[in-house]
Design a protein around this nucleic acid. Sequence first.
DNA 1: AATATTAGTTTACAAGTGTAAACTAATATT
DNA 2: AATATTAGTTTACACTTGTAAACTAATATT
Lengths: 130, 130
Amino acid sequence: MNNIISKISDSELSVMQVLWAYEEALPMTIIRKSIEETSQWDSSTIKTLLRRLCEKGAVSVEKRDVFYYRPLVTEKQYNDYSTQVFIDKVYRGSAKTLVAALFSGNKLKKDDIEELRAMFHIESEGVEND
Amino acid sequence: MNNIISKISDSELSVMQVLWAYEEALPMTIIRKSIEETSQWDSSTIKTLLRRLCEKGAVSVEKRDVFYYRPLVTEKQYNDYSTQVFIDKVYRGSAKTLVAALFSGNKLKKDDIEELRAMFHIESEGVEND
DNA sequence: AATATTAGTTTACAAGTGTAAACTAATATT
DNA sequence: AATATTAGTTTACACTTGTAAACTAATATT
């Protein structure tokens, strides 16, 4: 699975994100229209990306009247894995260092911090981890 | 600058990280020895990576008895920028969503959370941001 | 001095990526 | 029915990346 995830390229990810945004398998038409809203890729490009995603095992196709494409990797799986890879690469594995950097770089707004503090609070009272 | 950073590849990053780990410009000898501790790259590979980093403007060379290599991008610049790119790509720009995911995925240990809570606490009392 | 090691330069080369054109076959629109 | 649009397949092509070999020149070691 992680094997599959690590092969998804940035352009391919954009296509996956469209698939993740809907609940059901999608035909080209929908994918194309959805992507046209934010990018100017030729439909040819989208077709290539879908084909590559299928080859990599990240998407399956189902023949109905037309092909329907369905993600085989969930967004959470992708996000969790690629976050870990990113943290290992840039922050030598320390999630805490990353969060501290976000905080001191003002990437977290006051409201965000309130929310996170509440989360952290519940956790530190109710659960033991590590 | 960001332009330069976005061109640094993963392998090249490993070389940058060696340069960042020292204070002064470094000759090949040191770089090679330092990298040998953790990877089995041929010294040829390291030379190629250094050359590419110079071409990209991420490293400068200074001729003394032998060439000395010096990073032109700081680790903080790199980390900040690449973190932003990552968050934009995966978390649609929301640093808070990323932190929440780290938290609920147990990537933060109890001690980390304590530390971060303390950080957040000071901030939310002392400073207004956004 | 002869040999081994290393720095630096040039060349290589396959795999992956971004981006698409060119076809064919089906479907929709006038 | 003729034409336009679209889905799907095949082919393309330059650029980047990981990884190094081959060569030259300098330096160090025996």
